[in-house]
Computed example of a mutant assay.
Amino acid sequence: MKVAMGQFAVSREWQANAAVCTDLMNRSQASGADLLVLPENVLARDNADPDYVLKAAQPLDGPFVSQLRTASRGHLLTTIMSVHVPDGAQKVRNVLIVIRDGEIIAEYVKLHLYDAFAMQESQRVNAGDAVPPLIEVAGMRVGLMTCYDVRFPELARRLALDGADVLVLPSAWVKGPLKEMHWELLTAARALENTCYVVATGECGPRNIGNSLAIDPLGVVIAKAPESAALVFAELDPQRIAYARSVLPVLENRRFAPPELQPR
């Protein structure tokens, strides 16, 4: 599988962000990519106005997602991103969507909200209540995660036990002391402990680190983006997964039952 990681700084205007996403989709398709992973909440952002996520949110049949669905029509490229969707009075949901050939083929509502490091995502966002599905891309099974989810190994392990070969992670990883080290350590750990590939795309810009990563099942970084806008490619090889799981059979050797989602 050829994957693309398209990182950029999300702006305040959804039309500008839709144009950037469409361009990244077109470039990825032209380069022969099977999968494009974009950042978290690519619809709109205003770093000076935390309530802007409420004002800018759109339903999945709104103009932003509809424009990207139209851009994907007639292509085999699978594109993954997250957007904020209205969810009752003064709240939204952080919904990861998977688009292919004009359709949304899978959705996942972010389970773990970023209530850490002096931030409070739950003030404006409602958490999901379902384990994300697996999707198939180019013969490989892909598990879905979003940003802060990476700090919770139970979700990655559950997806690996469900059959995931690849874990994807759209993110908007906020800058701060040790935060880039956390990002690199956690993504590598989720890959290595589950003998899966991890494809983690981070938003760049004044608030977030960028630094998108593709990591192989033995924890080796095989592609990496800088702190600025970039489109980076990596090749994922099922034989590498088979080799990793033959020499490091952690999924077989485990002594614990598969993690189960607890009700809130």
Rank of each mutant, 00 (worst) to 15 (best):
M1E: 03
K2V: 09
K2M: 12
K2G: 05
V3I: 08
G6Q: 04
Q7Y: 06
A9K: 13
S11D: 11
R12V: 15
E13T: 13
N17G: 12
N17C: 13
N17M: 14
N17Q: 14
A19D: 14
D23L: 14
L24C: 01
M25S: 08
R27W: 06
S31E: 15
A33K: 06
L35Y: 02
L35F: 03
V37Q: 00
L38W: 00
P39E: 11
E40V: 01
E40Q: 10
N41A: 15
N41Q: 15
R45M: 14
A48V: 08
P50V: 14
D51C: 06
K55H: 13
G62C: 11
P63C: 12
F64E: 02
V65F: 02
L68K: 06
R69Q: 12
R69P: 00
T70E: 15
L77N: 02
L77D: 02
S82N: 02
H84Q: 10
D87C: 09
G88D: 07
A89T: 15
Q90C: 07
Q90D: 15
N94Q: 11
N94P: 03
L96H: 00
I97T: 03
V98L: 00
I99Q: 01
D101R: 01
D101Q: 03
G102R: 02
I105N: 00
L111W: 06
L113R: 05
L113M: 05
Y114K: 04
F117G: 00
M119W: 09
R124Q: 13
V125W: 08
D129R: 09
P133H: 07
P133E: 11
L134W: 09
I135D: 00
E136F: 03
G139H: 13
G139L: 12
M140N: 03
M140I: 07
V142Q: 02
G143Y: 06
D149C: 04
R151S: 13
P153T: 12
E154A: 14
E154F: 13
L155K: 06
L155Q: 09
R157F: 08
L159D: 10
L161I: 10
L161A: 05
G163D: 04
V166D: 01
L167E: 03
L169W: 00
P170K: 00
W173I: 04
K175M: 13
P177G: 06
P177T: 10
E180I: 09
W183Q: 05
W183S: 05
T187P: 02
A188W: 03
A189H: 12
A189Q: 14
A191Y: 11
L192A: 14
T195Y: 03
A200Y: 09
T201W: 00
T201I: 02
G202T: 04
C204Q: 12
G205Q: 09
G205F: 10
P206H: 12
N208L: 11
I209P: 04
N211C: 07
L213G: 02
D216R: 12
D216P: 08
V221H: 10
I222D: 04
A223E: 10
E227T: 12
V232R: 03
F233C: 04
E235F: 09
E235P: 04
L236H: 14
L236S: 13
R240Q: 15
I241C: 04
A242W: 09
A242F: 10
A242I: 07
A244W: 11
A244S: 14
A244V: 12
A244L: 11
E252Y: 01
E252I: 04
N253C: 05
R254L: 06
R254A: 08
R254Y: 00
R254D: 11
A257D: 10
L261T: 10
L261A: 08
L261S: 07
Q262H: 09
R264E: 03
